[in-house]
Computed example of a mutant assay.
Amino acid sequence: MRSTTALTTAALTATALAATLTGAVPVGAAPVAAATGSAATGSAARVAAASPRLGPCDTGQLCLWAKEGFKGARHAHELTGVDIEACVPLPAGTTAAALANRTGRPVTTYQSAECAETGEFETYPGGGTWVPQSPYQVRAFKVWEN
């Protein structure tokens, strides 16, 4: 029979692994390295070590990085400079490979610079979503009403 500590450790490890595999790391997620238990600690530490460090992004901002893992040039957008539900293309010749949505509103990122839905697109909740590796090069985004 598994103990409560082992079950909690397994749940934390599974949550962190799922977040790492999907690329979405919600703010406030329990730190995996805090898990206890002999066998689980080793796997939890490996998952925590594999997780990228979150990039700097202030409350109320949508931050986009040129490279995966919150590296490269960072561009921050605030609601004061963005029209709600309007397509906002990134500057010509630039793309984003990682993002953090701290706007408090859902944000959809697009592979297309025109926000066309014929390419890839994904919507991220605004309560604090960190994506160290977008599944495509982001070329535009829309901020939505709640």
Rank of each mutant, 00 (worst) to 15 (best):
E120H: 12
C57Q: 04
E114H: 14
G127S: 11
H77T: 04
A16G: 15
P91N: 04
D58H: 12
A19C: 13
L7G: 00
A50E: 05
R74L: 09
T4K: 06
L64R: 13
T8W: 06
Y124Q: 04
T20R: 15
A14E: 01
L7C: 01
H75D: 11
A30H: 03
T59S: 10
G69A: 06
E120W: 09
G81S: 14
G127A: 10
G104A: 01
G72E: 02
A29H: 09
R74E: 12
G93L: 06
P125K: 04
T59D: 13
G37N: 01
G42F: 13
S51F: 03
P106H: 09
E120C: 03
A35W: 00
V143I: 15
P89D: 11
G119Q: 12
D58P: 06
N146W: 09
Q111Y: 06
A18G: 13
P26L: 09
A49G: 12
P91L: 02
F141D: 08
G128C: 07
G128Q: 02
V47R: 05
P125S: 11
T103I: 05
A113K: 11
T80E: 12
T5D: 10
T95H: 09
L90W: 07
S134D: 01
T20N: 13
K71C: 03
A24Q: 13
A29S: 12
A100I: 12
F70I: 08
T109M: 08
T20A: 11
Q111A: 15
V143D: 01
Y136R: 03
A45P: 01
V143L: 07
W130C: 02
G60I: 05
Y110S: 06
T95K: 09
T13G: 07
G55W: 05
V25H: 14
A66E: 14
P135V: 10
A50Q: 05
C57S: 13
T36R: 11
S38N: 00
V82K: 13
S112C: 09
E120M: 11
A73P: 05
P106Y: 02
A10M: 03
A35L: 05
P56V: 07
G126Y: 12
T80K: 14
D58I: 00
T118S: 15
T9I: 00
A33P: 01
G37L: 02
P135W: 07
S112N: 05
Y110Q: 04
A33G: 10
T22V: 08
T13D: 02
W130T: 00
A49I: 01
L62K: 00
R139G: 01
L54P: 10
R102K: 14
V25R: 14
T80P: 02
T9M: 02
T15N: 03
P31G: 14
A116L: 12
P56R: 10
P135D: 07
R53G: 09
A11L: 14
G81R: 15
R2K: 10
Y110H: 12
Q133I: 03
C63S: 11
L99D: 00
A113D: 15
G55E: 05
T129Q: 03
V131R: 02
E78W: 08
V27I: 11
A92L: 10
R53K: 15
H77D: 07
I84P: 05
P106G: 10
A30T: 06
W144A: 13
T20V: 03
P132H: 15
